[in-house]
């Protein structure tokens, strides 16, 4: 596959989280505009391997926009210049011939660099482990209308549950805050009947873990919502605040 685009890439190269990184400039020649951004990097890497150099390390898995594994801060924005897309679904037609593209990893203290453009996002896993689950056995698929929940509320829970945990919200936030992610995970259970048992302990545990991981605070800029590849809404953060403050200030002492 060859094309007609020649690009200049400034790529962040870093051996590991103990060493300092720096930008290295690469030429990406003969790029087709039908390639995805990751395929463009594959082409560059093949070239590097041929030359006996260390290929650029970046995260990817499904390349279908559903796994949340790909990342990359491209020209100042997570997942590149388009809204509502992951890097694997970003195509080179969004760029033009001769363009310089700056590629950086997600920048956050809670996301240490593993190598080059790949960061360690297990902080998200630990937040999930702290409370992002239900203890009741939910059994098999229930009958339609078997669960006492209005369709609109079920839809809202589903929308929150579409979070793929890619970390673009943290990357986009000027404070490296993880609130959009955490609020989506809290919301999806807080809205559903099955999630009620641990509703308030969950909000407290997940927020405590989020703080312990060293994420920043929320300034309500809305950058996370704008950059989220699956469109998680800012209202989730309002709900998380409500759940947490309600839990801490009232619900915790309600049982006698």
């Amino acid at each position: 596959m060859s094309g007609n685009m020649n690009l200049t890439l400034k790529v962040w190269r870093q051996k590991n989280d103990k060493t300092r990184g720096k930008f290295i400039t690469y030429q990406a020649n003969g790029i087709s505009q039908d390639m995805s951004f990751l395929e463009m990097l594959d082409v560059v890497n093949e070239d590097l391997v041929r030359k006996g150099e260390d290929p650029i390390y970046f995260d990817h898995d499904c390349r279908e926009g559903i796994c949340g594994m790909c990342s990359l801060h491209i020209n100042g924005r997570p997942h590149g210049p388009k809204q509502g897309t992951t890097t694997c679904q970003l195509h080179m037609r969004s760029f033009h011939d001769g363009q310089t593209i700056v590629i950086e990893p997600w920048r956050a203290a809670a996301f240490p660099v593993i190598k080059d453009l790949a960061v360690d996002r297990t902080a998200f896993d630990r937040i999930q482990h702290a409370g992002g689950y239900v203890n009741v056995n939910t059994g098999g698929v229930p009958d339609a209308n078997g669960i006492p929940i209005p369709k609109t509320v079920a839809d809202e829970a589903f929308e929150s549950a579409t979070c793929i945990g890619c970390g673009a919200c943290v990357a986009a936030c000027k404070n490296a805050s993880a609130m959009l992610f955490v609020s989506a995970k809290i919301s999806q259970y807080a809205l559903l009947p099955q999630g009620q048992t641990e509703r308030y302990s969950r909000a407290q545990a997940m927020v405590a873990q989020m703080d312990a991981e060293g994420f920043g605070n929320c300034t309500n800029t809305g950058a996370c919502e704008a950059e989220c590849p699956v469109g998680i809404k800012l209202t989730n953060i309002a709900r998380m605040n409500r759940e947490y403050l309600n839990a801490k200030l009232f619900k915790e002492e309600e049982a006698h």
């Binding site: 400034k10 930008f23 801060h73 020209n75 100042g76 924005r77 210049p81 700056v102 950086e104 920048r107 956050a108 203290a109 809670a110 986009a172 000027k174 404070n175 490296a176 805050s177 060293g214 994420f215 920043g216 605070n217 300034t219 309500n220 800029t221 809305g222 950058a223 704008a226 950059e227």
Partner: peptide, 29 residues
């Protein structure tokens, strides 16, 4: 809160286009 936020991102971005995803006032409180 600001000091905490700075600590949450010790290495900043070389390119950061905040104007494309958020309002100026919200980033400069």
């Amino acid at each position: 809160v600001t000091i905490h936020n700075r600590k949450a991102r010790p290495v900043g971005y070389a390119v950061y286009r905040g104007s494309e995803n958020s309002a100026w006032s919200s980033r400069n409180m």
